[in-house]
Design a protein around this nucleic acid. Structure first.
Length: 734
DNA sequence: GTGTGGTGAAAA
DNA sequence: TTTCACCACACG
């Protein structure tokens, strides 16, 4: 085949010039010459010179940019890996256009595996030859029997499988009984078996699973939303869709919000499919990442479980994406290319034409709206499955049952905890606030400790002896004297954090074994895994945790969940406050009673009649969603209107502010669009850069993109340190 | 996104 | 005078 026939004939190009997307923020592909000895086609992964360096890029489609012949440089190398197919390239174009990001940066996300583009080296393997040993010992017999399947084995693999030492195998190699040969490297994980352990499903589960299996067999674009309380068996249901896709010869991607904390998920997958899925996340070792990338591209890996970035893996035969906990805000990427993985998963599926399954006990409002409008199929799992019974949930009216002076736990919760511990069961106290106290003030002059960078209070961390800003990471040792009036020892901590609740709990239950689980806990993921295992083994009586405990860990003895401050987060001005609180409280109370024991959830609140409390306690999600949706419709908020932000960031606070103001002035007059900020938008410090958001609200995404482009084009000339990015996303409101 | 080379100011 | 930090610029 000639080069010309490889490169689409419909693309008129003078000689051998092709467009290549390079990993930098240019608004289009760069042109490169293809030397005679190389053959490329759209999608080829190539090495090209870019200024003084060499970078990996993708040969793109469409016309190559006309450029001065003197500037043209040559493609240096075509990597020996499958080219990105047309669907993947359309996906990249689509994401770039939608998020208003440079296509090269989107392509870069698909090429994030430094040395994976050339094939993995072959490894030494062994195969049974024709000669047989003269002396046939027991051990040798076992090796011959094991290797008798005619397959190629690795040296250690064969020794292990035959139950002999590697020396026996080596001896047989020397005798020529086993012949060395080169074999392709082992896949990162063995292929999952769809029929490994078929589950027994409840009628509701079976019905939902059947629907999903049909969608997979249809092999066409569709979105299904599995909506069922924690413990109703959503995972088992979508595992059947996974099995169906595997039987159809398709690859499967399972997106999880926080892959680092998902040991239990991996185990469940193993139980169902006989092997773990390949894992993809940013903390994975580079070697593993490369293998997974490569093997997703070649089709050697059939199931990948990954964080949001896994959506940009170049799967060869992707036929199903599962988005577990679809409501989780961790699906949103908020730097470089701003995107929501759930939404982009749906886009990828619609381009290629395969089904997506969203799963959540507390779906996002926009998914519920899409389901109500018939765009998604809604599959409801109304009850808990098997032994698991729903916890008995009620509010504690804090006006009627106030805590003791200086405390934060009501007598009702304390009594219930006593009873729980007396039964030898575990209690969980949930408070979504790290540290000891959210505010420190001076009793003499009233001075409040505020962050010098942000509009936030400094949170005391007594254990570390520091006060810190949870917004930008600013911190200082806890002072002894008031910086305003100089008075010593008159600083008071106001309000509770988990450390303070732990202190109170320790006084109330001096004999109980108490543990605090907080995302800022030192020791990282490893320590956390250990702590979680200890809790599951019953080595702890009371767990005090931040939102980290909302993620899907199952503790068999956990029969009481106390929400210390259920009102927290309801009044911060975010139009998503109610939705977020409902989701969080729903997830946390769902931790109770997952293995059959009677369990309780108690919500300490000053507003027991608030719709969120009512919805949680009554289990009536329907009317909560209806109400929430109606409310948004009235306010013209997503998912009915669109919301975007123009994000301006700079190392210097004043630069960011100036530029944001300039952009605000430059916004074209448009009755349908509202631009807020920067005065109204809080300042944030993200990775050492000051960030402002100009909120833009409008009726339709397409209009909004034009508006955003026009605003930026008319805006002030950008300085080197200033960066402007766009966040077009119905999911995020700050 | 990143390396280069130009500019001016601090150090030798 | 030499060195260094900063920043605009180009990169095909």
């Amino acid at each position: 085949m000639t080069r010309d026939s490889l490169f689409t004939a419909s693309t008129p190009h003078t000689r051998d010039v092709v467009p290549v997307l390079v990993p930098m923020p240019a608004d289009r592909a760069y042109s490169y010459v293809v030397p005679d000895e190389l053959a490329v086609e759209p999608g080829s992964v190539v090495q090209v010179p870019l200024g003084p360096r060499k970078v990996a890029g993708v040969v793109w489609h469409g016309e190559s940019d006309a450029v001065d012949a003197k500037k043209l440089r040559a493609v240096e190398h075509v990597f020996d890996c499958p080219p990105l197919d047309a669907a993947m390239r359309r996906f990249i174009d689509w994401v770039a256009a939608y998020t208003l990001s440079p296509p090269g940066l989107v392509a870069r996300m698909a090429l994030r595996a430094p040395a994976a583009f050339d094939p993995e080296a072959m490894v030494e393997g062994l195969r049974l030859g024709d000669t047989r040993p003269e002396r046939l010992t027991d051990a040798r017999g076992r090796v011959l029997e094991t290797a008798g399947d005619g397959m190629a084995w690795t040296r250690s693999g064969l020794a292990h499988a035959a139950g002999v030492s590697a020396g026996v195998v080596d001896g047989l190699v020397r005798l020529g009984v086993l012949e060395p040969l080169l074999v392709p490297p082992r896949p990162v994980v063995p292929p999952p078996e769809p029929g490994y352990a078929e589950p027994s499903l409840s009628p509701a589960q079976a019905e939902a699973a059947e629907t999903l299996v049909e969608k997979v067999r249809e092999d066409a674009f569709s979105v299904s939303l599995i909506d069922g309380v924690t413990g109703s068996g959503k995972t088992e249901v979508y595992f059947e869709a996974v099995a169906a896709a595997l039987r159809e010869g398709r690859q499967v991607l399972i997106l999880l919000p926080e892959i680092a904390l998902t040991e239990q998920f991996m185990d469940r997958f193993h139980v169902r499919f006989g092997t773990r899925p390949a894992q993809w996340h940013s903390e994975a070792a580079p070697k593993t990442r490369e293998k997974v990338w490569r093997q997703a591209a070649t089709g050697a890996v059939r199931v990948v479980a990954g964080a949001r970035s896994a959506l940009f893996l170049p799967f060869r035969e992707l036929g199903l994406v599962i988005v577990d906990e679809e409501h989780d805000p961790a699906y949103k990427q908020e730097d470089r290319v701003f995107y929501h993985a759930r939404d982009m998963a749906i886009v990828r599926a619609s381009i290629t034409g395969f089904p997506v399954v969203l799963a959540s006990a507390t779906p996002s409002i926009e998914s519920r709206v899409n389901a109500d409008r018939g765009r998604y199929t809604r599959l409801r799992l109304p009850a808990r499955f098997g032994e698991a019974a729903l916890p008995d949930l009620s509010t504690i009216d804090m006006r009627r049952h106030p805590p003791a002076r200086g405390g934060f736990l009501s007598p009702v919760l304390i009594e219930e905890t006593k009873a729980t511990l007396a039964r030898g069961e575990q209690a969980l106290y949930f408070l979504n606030r790290r540290g000891y106290a959210p505010l420190t003030l001076c009793r003499v002059c009233g001075h409040r400790f505020e962050c010098p960078n942000c509009s936030a209070w400094l949170v005391e961390h007594r254990f570390r002896g520091r006060i810190e800003c949870h917004h930008c990471g600013y911190g200082q040792p806890t002072p002894e004297a008031c910086p305003e009036c100089g008075t010593l020892d008159h600083l008071v901590a106001c309000g509770p954090g988990v450390e303070r609740i732990a202190e109170e709990t320790d006084k109330l239950f001096p004999d109980a074994r108490i543990i605090v689980l907080s995302s800022d806990m030192m020791g990282g993921t490893k320590r956390l895994q250990r702590e979680l295992a200890a809790i599951a083994d019953g080595e702890v009586d009371i767990v005090i945790g931040t939102q980290l405990v909302a993620k899907g860990h199952n503790f068999p003895m956990m029969t009481l969940v106390g929400i210390v401050d259920a009102d927290l987060g309801l009044s911060n001005g975010d139009p998503r406050a109610a939705e977020r609180t409902y989701q969080l409280l729903g997830q946390v109370t769902g931790r109770a009673g997952r293995t059959g024991r009677a369990s309780r959830g108690l919500l300490q609140t000053y507003q027991p009649t608030h719709p969120v409390m009512q919805a949680i306690v009554s289990g009536d999600a329907e009317s909560f969603y209806e109400r929430e949706i109606a409310e948004r419709e009235r306010a013209g908020l997503p998912p009915f209107g669109r919301l975007a932000s123009i994000i301006v960031s700079a190392e210097d606070r004043a630069d960011a502010e100036d530029h944001a103001r300039g952009l605000r002035r430059a916004a074209p007059a448009d009755a349908a669009m509202t631009v807020l900020g920067p005065a109204e938008a809080p300042l944030a410090l993200v990775r050492g850069r000051y960030r402002f958001r100009l909120l833009v609200q409008g009726p339709r995404t397409a209009d909004m993109q034009g508006f955003l482009r026009a605003t930026i084009a008319a805006g002030p000339k950008m300085r080197r340190t200033v960066r402007v990015q766009i966040d077009v996303d119905p999911q995020s409101f700050l």
